[in-house]
């Protein structure tokens, strides 16, 4: 009892002296190492968010005929009320939800399928296919959308011309179709990228497991299903979250499609709604409010998805 009582009294003193000096040094090192990150994080991440939130409480006001110098006035939550009460905001949000519910599972499904094929024992020329599948991702998003616009445009598209010659009325840009035409562009652009993430996760799994399974008589299909796929769950969760966030930020495709399709208006997706508010209507407060709401939706969805996906893995 006494020995144990004495020991802690002495030992901590020694240790404390050592750690105090050490901690100071370590603390200095930690600060030095994380400073660049923290500063950049504050500057390019936190500041714009705070600024947007502040801006969302203000609105531009003029008087009389409107040609006097406009002034910025505090309007409280008015911009948020306006967004929540506006049909345009909800239809824009509805569109990206519909898009996400269909496009994300389809894209990740294809990506997983391709990754499993390339990882299978029978695959040949893996590195060639890896590059080929990944290639669309290397094309800048806007350019990809313009490229596809040519394939969709009723007067220029070879597919429409082919349809015409076969007597079929092909329309990629109608009100019910255009969202899925955009989903096709996104899928084309990002499947390879997601496949690559999944493939690297697959290749990190120790090969012995597959051998053992094969000796036990498991088919390649069964190995893919019950051994490989469950083990790359973190990669699936990561690509899932990336895709959800990407969907919420959908902008290039609708912005380009608007030039050629009457089914896409200036408020088709929330990002276009916010951009139009800021740079066409000069209503930065409303644009900020929409952006903040959108960030909230993205945050809630990501947390929800992560919790669900990770709970099922436990």
């Amino acid at each position: 009892m006494t020995t144990t009582a004495v020991r802690p009294r002495v030992a901590p003193q020694v240790v404390r002296g050592a750690t105090r000096r050490g901690t100071r040094r370590v603390r200095g090192a930690i600060l030095t190492l994380i400073a660049p990150f923290v500063l950049l994080f504050l500057f390019v991440y936190v500041t714009p968010i705070v600024y947007s939130v502040v801006q969302s409480f203000f609105s531009l006001q003029t008087s009389s005929l409107g040609f006097g110098e406009p002034s910025t006035v505090f309007v409280g939550l008015d911009n948020y009320t306006k967004a929540i009460e506006s049909g345009a905001f909800w239809s824009a949000l509805g569109r990206i939800f519909a898009f996400g519910f269909v496009q994300v599972p389809v894209m990740l499904g294809i990506a997983l399928g391709l990754a499993l094929l390339l990882d299978s024992a029978a695959a040949r020329w893996v590195s060639l296919y890896r590059i080929l599948y990944f290639l669309p991702y290397a094309i800048p998003g806007v350019i990809a959308a313009v490229l596809w616009a040519y394939l969709y445009s009723p007067t220029l598209s070879p597919f429409v011309a082919l349809g015409d010659s076969l007597g079929a009325d092909v329309d990629f840009l109608g009100p019910r179709v255009v969202l899925w035409s955009m989903a096709n562009i996104t899928t084309w652009a990002f499947t390879g990228y997601n496949m690559l993430i999944m493939l690297s996760a697959l290749q990190a799994i120790p090969r012995e497991q597959f051998e053992a399974a094969r000796i036990d008589g498991a088919s390649e299909w069964r190995i893919a299903r019950v051994i490989k796929t469950p083990q790359i769950r973190p990669a699936l969760v990561l690509t899932g979250i990336n895709s959800i966030i990407g969907t919420i930020q959908l902008f290039n495709e609708p912005q380009v499609m608007r030039v050629i399709s009457d089914a896409v208006n200036s408020e088709y997706v929330p990002t276009m709604l916010a951009m139009g508010a800021a740079f066409v209507k000069n209503d930065f407060g409303y644009a900020a409010a929409v952006s903040v709401l959108l960030a909230l939706v993205a945050g809630v969805l990501s947390v929800l998805y992560y919790t669900l996906a990770m709970r099922r893995s436990q």
């Binding site: 998003g141 350019i143 313009v146 616009a149 912005q255 030039v259």
Partner: peptide
């Protein structure tokens, strides 16, 4: 010309 017009419109993204 058409390509230029479309690409230019698309460039709005980079605004």
């Amino acid at each position: 010309t058409a390509a230029a017009a479309l690409a230019a419109t698309a460039m709005v993204t980079a605004l």
